[in-house]
Design a protein around this nucleic acid. Structure first.
Lengths: 147, 147
DNA sequence: TATTGTTATACTCTATAACTATA
DNA sequence: TATAGTTATAGAGTATAACAATA
């Protein structure tokens, strides 16, 4: 009836989550100091890198639901960062575009992101990062494939 | 007035965040199916692996604030998973202990976590994971060190 | 006064369900 | 009917500030 200690070592997924949390938190702080946020930055990237896509695709590329993206876009539109206009050829589609303020914020946040990543990569060779990203991809694929 | 596309490649930090999100989400789903959650699992691990620590240390090991941990413990106490009793030697300290239900849930979630990690590691050699975790540590350290 | 933890409150991100507009 | 997106609502996780209990 005693309670023998169970040998225990934190699993790899937890290591990944903890590291990602620490990195995201530090990144968020720098984004906030520059007038942005992680979510805003992701939307700006998504809009900037695939201007033609509809919102559903945009949301998918961010890993969130369409309604969640609407939520973020509402805030960004209210802040004057983006505009949404119906596409004349298919008026169901809303074309999301950056305003000048949105473009300016994108450039500012990009500076922050580039600087952050430069610091993040300190002491890490490109080869290390390539392998690292390869394993990231593998983990994500393993996690999401049906057992 | 045209809009020349700015060459752009998602930074590494974003890759890390996206992979962690995908993995965490899949993990959360399995935890939920077993009656738990990521937060509950982390508390159980923290309590289980360092029973002597006070709540502040517990929170720190989870990367959250003390008040946030209280929030989780309130829920877990209400669910009958943990008890909190004052330490007679220093009555400011609340000793967090698992109830039998908490122990049972720990074991159940551990099964889920072990199975998940087994699947997660599919096709990855220990050597790969060692290097991977080393880089995770490095990234976390780089992110949190003052620039 | 300092330490430990809780309460009160609020913010952000996320989701689902029901809805509107358009095709 | 099907598709694109929005609105309404809710839940989880987090934080800060003020507080109570104890030392």
């Amino acid at each position: 009836m005693t309670n023998p200690p169970i040998p225990f070592r934190p699993p790899v997924g937890l290591r990944l989550a903890a590291a990602a949390k620490a990195v995201s938190r530090a990144f968020d702080e720098e984004m906030a100091a520059a007038g942005g946020s992680m979510a805003i930055w992701q939307v700006l990237i998504a809009v900037k890198s695939r201007q033609t896509g509809n919102q559903r695709e945009l949301a998918a590329s961010m890993g969130i639901q369409g309604a969640t993206l609407t939520h973020h876009l509402n805030g960004m539109e209210k802040s004057g960062l983006v505009t949404r206009a119906r596409n004349p050829e298919n008026r169901r589609v809303h074309a999301v575009e950056l305003t000048p303020a949105g473009e300016a914020l994108f450039l500012r946040l990009r500076e922050v992101a580039l600087g952050f990543n430069h610091r993040l990569r300190d002491g890490l060779a490109d080869e290390d990062l390539d392998r690292f990203e390869h394993i990231l991809d593998r983990l994500a694929a393993n996690a999401t494939k049906e057992s």
